[in-house]
Design a protein around this nucleic acid. Sequence first.
DNA 1: ATCGTTCTTGTAATCGTTTACAAGCCCGAC
DNA 2: GTCGGGCTTGTAAACGATTACAAGAACGAT
Lengths: 330, 330
Amino acid sequence: MSRPTIAGVARAAGVSVASVSRVLNGLPATEEMIERVQRAVDELGYVPDARARSLKVGRTFQLTLAVADVGNPVYVTMMRAVEEVVSAAGYRLVVTTTGPDVVDEVALVRGMARGYADGLLISPIRVDEDLVKSIRECEVPVVVAGNVPAKAGVDTVRANSPKGMLLAVDHLVAKGRRRIAFLNGPADTVPGAARSKGFTEAMKAHGLDPIAVAEASDFTFAAGRAAAPAVLGGESRPDAVIAANDLLAVGLMHELAAAGLEVPGDVAVVGMDDSELAEQSFPPLTSVNLGSAERGRRAAELLLARIEDNQRTPRRIVVQPSLSIRRSTP
Amino acid sequence: MSRPTIAGVARAAGVSVASVSRVLNGLPATEEMIERVQRAVDELGYVPDARARSLKVGRTFQLTLAVADVGNPVYVTMMRAVEEVVSAAGYRLVVTTTGPDVVDEVALVRGMARGYADGLLISPIRVDEDLVKSIRECEVPVVVAGNVPAKAGVDTVRANSPKGMLLAVDHLVAKGRRRIAFLNGPADTVPGAARSKGFTEAMKAHGLDPIAVAEASDFTFAAGRAAAPAVLGGESRPDAVIAANDLLAVGLMHELAAAGLEVPGDVAVVGMDDSELAEQSFPPLTSVNLGSAERGRRAAELLLARIEDNQRTPRRIVVQPSLSIRRSTP
DNA sequence: ATCGTTCTTGTAATCGTTTACAAGCCCGAC
DNA sequence: GTCGGGCTTGTAAACGATTACAAGAACGAT
């Protein structure tokens, strides 16, 4: 009653295992051979064992996408794009969650050496020496969606947060807002650091000083709510807030409503990531599109290319942002 | 420069492969043996190959969770719960997306026979004969989060939608609403059919006739928006709408706002699933909690139990709903 | 010293595939 | 009739682990 193996099929068809394997892999064979094998396969309901196959051929035809938090809608955008590319190339995509800790990311990368997948696409939220080292030493190709040092010598696709921040500030300034505040996520994360730097630069470019800068404990809705007072509670209220991602922005907007402030009338709000949530929130959220879909697509392509040829020199792609203007800004 | 194998480690340590394997698996060995193997392992950076291991021991220590749409926030709730249970049991969780078509689900279940994972947790959106058949015949344990016929003889954990609908209608009626409409998802899906039936029963229990019933083309935000006119455009406007899930409810609320209608003043809105989106939407959405987290947890437990003992008689668990009241209802 | 027991270690078979190589067959050309 | 070439098919050796079994070492009891 146990699973039929290729040997069973061979016996049933009265041929050798090699012939069965050849027929199944579409290698040349006579009509009669194909016929007999096919019949035996159907009859027994044989399905080849992927473990044995991949042990022999050294490939699993699986790719892993690792993200920090499945609850963050930016990852669904990315995931959709990645899925499309890799499935077109004949790979299955499996998604795993790392959580916010860098040690888990390192463990994941190290674990890839076990041969679960042919490649890893990781979007790390925190990066340290260990992670870079483990990526460089990893037995399977890795591409990073995010920012790691150039010396790491690894394919990366990253966003241009400073440029994105500039778009956001430009837009707010054009609409007459000057008292601009910034709601960041944890500054010890890669996106947190980049966005903080970008915000400071963009404000300087306009000769403005921030009204307030707050740091949420996480890139989540709840953290956005919790950090709202820090961004609003200063002596002079901001007339615009830029949040480091959409979840934070939406959390903030809830607190604005609770405080009786209108968006965008009293306070304009700009998010980042332009995820599905930006469209779904109310009012719909003006958001900096950091090209998540394109980043996913390009990253997937880099991964496939590196699987083809592991010797190619690492590429570092930067995708340009745009601004999706919706009703949370005037 | 290629990956070290157990044979390489054995050679480096000057012992046999069996001894290396034993040390690595914590079987009894002398201090000196452990020491030598450990040193060789560290030196070579050896990591056992999961494919080879699982080929031999017949287990991969991976579990697959298959969902229809990663963009649906109800799945993130479920995913979190499942992840917690299975990782505590020493399994890795991988997530794959099936899309809305039942043929893809069937292909997935069939594909499990290839041995990618030790078990499958699937939340099918459409169910047909083929799917039931493929689940029953599947080589690896499968548990279904959702509703399949009892005769399928498979472990299931499902929600009690009729009861949930009753909670929603009870609540609306208690708040004085009588002109209640229903915004369903596709009626040819399992949740669509169940929620439709539940709604009809609940209304009947209160002696009410629905003001309008509309069917969105999908359980998505966009479909909710598109179907809004059908639910609002009748001769008499509803004073309350129940949506078959949170995404539909939020889509509807956007159209209500566009039409200048207040929530809950003019129209109360109730969603279903009580996902993170219900909390994040504005106004926060009253939503029927169908116990996604608990369903995920229980389903994961059933799966683990069945992996332990494949002979146990299938269980069918129903988890009870509750109502999370927020500001979209009076 | 011999025997039996227990403990450690090594040899080799096995899991289910793929594939290099060899063998067999058929066929036409000389 | 023999030979060589091209196909088709089969045999057996991998892939990298685990593990049953056997052999050897150590040791205490007689």
